[in-house]
Nucleic acid binder design. Structure first.
Lengths: 227, 227
DNA sequence: CATGGATTCAATCAAACGTTTGAATTAATC
DNA sequence: GATTAATTCAAACGTTTGATTGAATCCATG
């Protein structure tokens, strides 16, 4: 049994890197094992299928992150009701701290976002399994931090907040426009800072509608502007 | 030359539906043409390649939307400096109005978000081409609406705002948690309303950092909580 | 040093992929 | 009614996919 441990982790490390770049669906098991310098059959021997490789590379890192999220939440809650900023920090910080890890931290964060957005069903369900507890805990905590909002409204806003994070992790520098989004020069801490402030303000915004004059008209099929 | 027009649009319509569900990469040209009831060679005859089919189905709908966004922006700007809410409405409303179209509007919005998140390079560049003008105009407009913020900060926040929209369009009802995100009962108008309020508050949030006590510690590698 | 389970390897499988081909079919033009 | 161009079609192209096989190799143990 030559270097069994090395082979298995070599596959996971390489998968983390390639999947995050090209998506799980965009990387063949052949190119993956070739890049790792191992035989194709080794991947099936150690994991059983490509699907299981993907699940393993995901679970390997997301579990410590989600464990830390809950521990941070626990710590904050020991000192009374956490503020919105504290809740957001407890949620965002472990992810961004992992993303900052020198070796492959960032690769994984992108992989994590890909798991969320790729259409394959097993990726979706894997993601759901790994996150259900964390999201349930935070949903509850935000509900208590924002008692004036309905449960549905809190769920909707938490959904928006996750959108900000997923999008930011997935598109760290490059975006549609050169100067849009975090710049290469920005530190992760500055990005987290900006993100927490942005989302906290959104979570706290007034529950009632202060809709601008043109909004309803803009949503109707109006001939004078739309075409 | 039997029903050339019908065949071409049949392919586009079917592609819009299938690509939005499974992603461009997740749908083979074979299954696509089979679902459309046309020969597989017809796709190559009319478009040249699968790539060109994807570009065509995207351009067909995004151009009117982005044209309307700019027209709405022009209309608002005729009456002076638009508010943040007006700018957000001008940006979000055309997309959500299309998403509300009875036939295939929603399919396309999801496709649009997939173009943004799928890793294939040509999807990315196509997206960038179609959006560069719109984003440039709105970046500039937000900069004027929020003069107290630096240009970089506005770009970062606009990036967050797009994240909210992409995420919301991509995950309309189903999410990791049953009661997270827009519910099936929510109307599009209510979702737009909530989205505009959330994002407007984020765009307007104080530029200086009011960081919670634990945030910096949470980002450092701290042994007592992380594990 | 022999045994045996663990691991690696080259070779191969059927299925699916995007693309191409050349003949058949359709509809307009002369 | 023959000619021509546009369109459709079944069939096949070569390549790549995830998965499997059975022989070879390794290493800890007896």
């Amino acid at each position: 049994m030559p270097n069994a441990r090395e082979t298995k982790e070599l596959i996971l490390d390489t998968a983390e890197k390639l999947f995050s770049e090209k998506g799980v669906d965009g990387v063949s098991l052949r190119s993956l094992t070739a890049a790792a310098g191992v035989n194709i059959a080794a991947a099936h021997y150690h994991f059983g299928s490509k699907e299981e490789v993907a699940k393993a590379v995901f679970a390997r890192r997301i579990r410590p992150v989600n464990r830390e999220r809950i521990q941070l939440l626990d710590t904050y809650q020991e000192h009374g009701q956490p503020s919105v900023e504290e809740l957001l920090t407890a949620f965002f910080a472990p992810a961004l701290r992992l993303a900052r890890e020198p070796q492959r931290g960032y690769d994984f964060m992108r992989l994590c976002a890909r798991f969320y957005s790729e259409p394959a069903e097993y990726l979706e369900s894997t993601f759901r399994e790994e996150f259900s507890q964390v999201l349930s805990r935070f949903h509850e905590a935000f509900q208590r931090a924002l008692p004036e909002l309905g449960e549905e409204e809190v769920g909707l806003r938490l959904h928006f907040a996750i959108g900000v994070m997923v999008h930011t992790l997935l598109n760290p520098t490059r975006t549609c426009l050169p100067r849009l989004g975090p710049q290469a020069s920005d530190s992760d801490k500055a990005t987290l800072d900006a993100m927490v402030r942005f989302v906290a303000a959104g979570m706290r915004s007034a529950p009632a509608a202060q809709f601008p004059a043109g909004a309803v008209a803009a949503l109707s099929a109006h001939a004078e502007v739309a075409q």
